[in-house]
Each structure stands twice: as structure tokens, then as C-alpha cells.
Design a protein around this nucleic acid. Structure first.
Lengths: 241, 241
DNA sequence: GTTTGCAGGTGACGTAACGTAATCTAATAT
DNA sequence: ATATTAGATTACGTTACGTCACCTGCAAAC
């Protein structure tokens, strides 16, 4: 098992050594091993925890809250709320951007600005400052965390999902047509599973598939997705006709 | 001349009264008027300054730096750097988003994550933490601020721009064809002006027109832009053939 | 005429999340 | 043998306010 020193971790994660020591000090992230002379050594698991902390910090939650959240939420749940947070950030940024360039234009064309003009624009944009708890939506927390196994880390439903995804990969590889018996079965199973997992909450289902879609289009980082997703969409479209 | 109290300003700009008092205390934004009992009253100009401060704060510069920048840069220059900052924010956010959803996918499909997978993704995204000075780019500062009048607030070149824009509006109103003599003259004048203003810096010119384009498409906030911009593009495309 | 409430004020201390010395230790390089 | 490097501890400093205790001027209510 590899272990990393403070310096290594700090460089890798682009944070200061001081920060690591601080997290140890407040007992947020004590290194899993300290040698005789007091040197800190971090395990792979420690790094995961650190990564969680960094993500949660980017939601701007105070370290105290992070401490309690860390215990209760899985990596995945944290990622999902992070994702929500990012989405919202982007849309606020977009209105900021268009406001900013509007202002720039106004300056050019009117020579100077009247305060009314400015405040019109600015007021629209910053009406709501969200708290971090908003990103862990009640419904999601309730469904994802408490009731039934659902999407928690290693449960049965997840296994079924994975098995279905494997079947889909197989279908694609062998060029099975969307009209075939197998595919219809897969689609049925999929919608069934969706309904169980999300308890029929249509919005959550949409959100779920939206999340699946994005990385394929934008990064291509994950090997299968694009085809699979299209396939799935095809399945469902055909099956629900 | 209307004047606003601390409470009013605070509510309007969504900051705390304490913040206003603090800015007075450190002499960053002393209200332009204080009555006998010590009450603060802010003028319209004060509000503009406050707005500048808020913008500059969103570039995360410390108040000390803001103090010095305030004196040196015009509202417009501040807005431009803010714009640059926002653009960059958006693109980092976009890679963050796709990384996040990639990770979510990985969790589902691999069941658990290996540290290598995670760090691959994460490392790409956060290689550079920019300092705020980067948003006041050397070239822009140099060109926009020092040399020649250029785009500073009320100079001759700006006036010429505005006059041309008025001519364009007129042309659109009267349905003048892009092949006509007038339009070619306008286009010539425009490119000439661009070259003077930006000293032939093609990238800056592009940036300039990009900025002009955005708000029209996205918000429609400014009354003329969409047609005018298309017209201008038409002009130049035709004239440079 | 007093009380109450509200919107403002002034200290002064508290705080989060580290940054930044100053000083010490152990291991390695020259 | 010494210098350099990478780590450690202790402790005080910092930014941009939040918060608390207490004071003031004035209009409305009793």
C-alpha cells in the first residue's frame, strides 16, 4: 500500500502543507499513519476523503459542516450535489456575462451610465444567494439516502443497472436492432428499474439521464457512453410508443 | 440630488450595513455626506463606486488592491476585466462539470473508484490558479489605458464609433443595400477605426466584436444590436472580398 | 408626557481558514 | 563534516466582516 507525505499530497492536490496540517489539527483529516518522528503519511483512502473535502469546500460549506456531511454521504451523493451546484453556478455566470457586456455596450453608446440603467441590470441578477443545503435537495436526500437501497454505493439495484448496461454494450457490439425482442425486454427492465429507484418521480428520472448524457457529448472521457445512451434512448422511445 | 441611507443601499446591493460601515472605516468608500448626528448618506456617484468595488471583489481582489485600482481604471476597463474573468470561470466550470459527471458514471459502472481514475481527471482540471492581475492583461492595459486616447471614456475615437453606429442605424432604417457606395464607405471607415483603436492587433479586434455580439444573442437587452451587428458583419464581409 | 419602536450610530471583541515566521529534527547529498 | 532538504511544532498575524452591548434621534401610540 502506497503512502504519501504531506509534501506529495499538497503538490498533487494543489493545496498547502499548512492546510493538511490544519485538517489534521482540527481532526477533519488525520493521516492514517504517523511515523515515530511525527511525519504524516496519507493512504489512498485518505486521499479520497481529502478529495471529498475539497469538493465539499467548493460548495462553500464550512469545515465544521463538512465534518458531519462526510460521515453521512457517499462519494457519489457528494458528487451529485456538486454537480447541481456547478450547474447553477454556470447559469448565474451566464447572466452575469451578458449583463457585463450589456454594460460595456451601454458605456460605448451612451458615453456614460445613469445609475438607473446599471441597477436595472444588476438587480435582476443577484436576487437569490443560495445556501449549500439547497444542493442536497430534500427529495434527493430522502430518496437517495434513506428509503430502500436505491443508488447507495453497493446495493442490489445498482448491480442490476450495471448488468443491464453490460447487456446493452453486448447488443451494440452485435448490432442488435432496436425492434428486436431482446431490446424491448431491456427497455422494459430499464424503465421498471427507473421507476423503482426513483419511486416514479419523473423529474428525478430526467435529471438522472441528463447527467448520464453530458460527459459523453462534452468530453468523451468515458469509453462507452455516447452509443449506449443513444441506444437507450432509442430503446425507450420505441418501447413506449 | 437623491441620497440613500446605509439601510437603503445595503438592501439594494444586497450587502450588509456592517460592510458599508467597514468600507467607510477603512476609507474605501466614505459616504459623500454625513449629517450632524453622524448618519451616512450615499450619492449616486457613491453607488457607482460601490458597484465597482463589488465587481472588483468578485474578481477576488483584496480590498487593499481595490483601493488602488479604483483610482486608476475606468468603469469600463473594470467591466472588461470582469468579463474576462467570467469567461474563464465558465470554462473551468465546464470542465469541472464534465469531470464530475464522468466520475458519477464511473462510480456506477465500476462500482467503486480507484484513486488513479480520480486523480487523472482531477489533475487535468486544476492545473492553474490564476491571479487577478491576469485579467488586466498587459496588452490591454497598455493599449486601453496609456497609448493614445483609444477606448478611454470620452475621447474622439469613441465619438467616431458612435457616429458610425448612428449612420448604420440610419442605413438599416432606410433599407440601404450592402452593395451600395455608402455602406462600403462605412465599412472602410469601420475597419480603419478598428485598426487605429487596436493598433492592428487582430486578436483584440476579434475580442471586441465578440463582446459586441454576445448580449444581443443572449439577452436582447440592448435595443439596436442584433440587426446592427449583422449589418456590420455584412459590410465587412462584402468590403474585404 | 412618557413610552415604545425603529433606523441609525460607535466601540470592541469574535471568527474561519489558513499564512507566515521562528525554531527544531532527521535523513540524505556532497 | 557539513549543507541541504523535507518534514515538524508553536504561536502570532490576517482578511473581511459577524455579532454583541449599548447609545441616539425621532415619529407614532398610549
Amino acid at each position: 500500500m502506497k503512502r504519501w507525505t504531506t509534501g506529495e499530497v499538497a503538490k498533487q492536490r494543489n493545496i498547502s502543507i499548512r492546510t493538511l496540517r490544519y485538517y489534521d489539527q482540527i481532526d477533519l483529516l488525520p493521516p492514517s499513519f504517523k511515523d515515530a518522528s511525527g511525519k504524516r503519511y496519507y493512504s489512498e483512502e485518505d486521499l479520497f476523503t481529502l478529495e471529498k473535502i475539497i469538493i465539499l469546500k467548493s460548495l462553500s460549506l464550512p469545515l465544521e459542516d463538512i465534518r458531519s456531511v462526510l460521515a453521512k454521504l457517499s462519494y457519489k451523493q457528494i458528487l451529485i450535489s456538486h454537480y447541481n451546484y456547478l450547474q447553477e453556478q454556470i447559469s448565474t455566470l451566464q447572466t452575469s456575462i451578458s449583463n457585463t457586456s450589456s454594460l460595456i455596450n451601454l458605456i460605448d453608446l451612451e458615453g456614460s451610465l445613469s445609475w438607473e440603467r446599471v441597477s436595472e441590470l444588476v438587480q435582476n441578477s443577484q436576487k437569490s444567494a443560495k445556501k449549500w443545503t439547497d444542493y442536497f435537495q430534500k427529495s434527493e436526500l430522502a430518496i437517495l439516502q434513506e428509503s430502500i437501497p436505491n443508488l447507495s454505493d453497493n446495493d442490489d439495484t445498482t448491480q442490476q443497472y450495471i448488468s443491464i448496461l453490460r447487456q446493452i454494450e453486448w447488443c451494440i457490439e452485435h448490432n442488435i436492432k432496436p425492434q428486436s425482442e431482446e431490446v424491448i425486454q431491456i427497455a422494459t427492465k430499464l424503465t421498471e428499474l427507473s421507476n423503482i429507484t426513483f419511486q416514479g418521480d419523473a423529474e428525478l428520472i430526467d435529471k438522472f439521464w441528463e447527467v448520464r448524457k453530458l460527459p459523453a457529448e462534452e468530453t468523451g472521457l468515458y469509453p462507452i457512453p455516447d452509443e449506449v445512451l443513444k441506444f437507450v434512448e432509442g430503446c425507450i422511445a420505441y418501447a413506449t410508443d
